[in-house]
Nucleic acid binder design. Structure first.
Lengths: 148, 148
DNA sequence: TTTTTTGATGCAATTAAGTTGCATAAACTA
DNA sequence: TAGTTTATGCAACTTAATTGCATCAAAAAA
């Protein structure tokens, strides 16, 4: 199941379950809610965002939910300067073994929102002789379309 | 005074003082030691690194030293996934008003060292219509030349 | 369906990072 | 040197990240 197709699926709950199952994760209320929230929001979220949204769950549970999604390859961590970890949905092509995120992360300096610009390919990067590139993370900040 | 020339200067202490003065910072032991350490190490450092190295200074003092260097434009913050802020020396061309860091930050997944690859220009990045780019941060991870 | 096994959750508690206020000490200025 | 400005150390607080453990729920087996 491709994550980007989820909103066209009639039965959202069934779709969420399929996603969790396909990543070998048990189906729980917390995971269903968090996954649905990520799909709705489309932007990146921090643990703090989840704590505000889902007060019915313990913050440790949310912490472990994020971690299990990270390990499963459903989410990826987005580097930033603030010190607070933010997470974004992985591309459909990601598997637990092979994460590929050569898209751009955009942070709006006005509204603070972080988005994954999936349609913009990150350019290729050259590193000095002797260095081996594994992953490329591109973070652009500025003003997003909504705030201009 | 160009920071990259510092190691060719005969009198290191005088050079450090000149750098601090030119950024309108008072000359103190802590600032001298921290600045010298950054110049020696060449790589990026976290507050924790400084706390381990300079046990004679209070951690709040080191925290404020890093902040004053940030504001002065001597250091820049490097975004990363770990949640711990890391700092690198600014290019010679940086001023407090105008920071430009379109070089690559490289994090070695083996030794954990973060470096600024000043010689590698970051490629230009295109963002979707309606978005305005202010800064570009490029973080590459992999294996550095020493660890290959 | 019931039982068993495996894994998730909530709570308590700890560690570490980031941050502020304030009194004192040191650096700069006149 | 005297006076002014700023840095430092200490105490304290906030928040994020993290672990252990008992309990509870989900999946698998019977």
């Amino acid at each position: 199941m491709q994550l980007s197709c989820i909103n066209y699926v009639c039965n959202m709950s069934e779709a969420l379950k399929t996603i969790l199952k396909s990543h070998n994760l048990r189906i729980t209320d917390c995971r269903m809610d968090v996954l649905r929230y990520f799909l709705d929001k489309k932007g990146a979220l921090s643990q703090g965002n989840l704590e505000n949204r889902f007060t019915q769950y313990d913050r440790v549970t949310l912490y472990r939910t994020l971690n299990s999604f990270l390990e499963a390859g459903i989410l990826h961590k987005i580097p930033n300067e603030s010190g607070t970890a933010t997470y974004g949905l992985c591309h459909d092509t990601c598997t637990p073994e092979y994460h590929l995120h050569n898209h751009i992360h955009f942070k709006c300096n006005n509204c603070g929102q972080i988005e994954c610009l999936d349609d913009e390919e990150a350019p290729s990067v050259s590193v000095p002789k002797g260095y081996v590139t594994e992953r490329v993370n591109l973070i652009v900040d500025g003003v997003c379309a909504k705030c201009v």
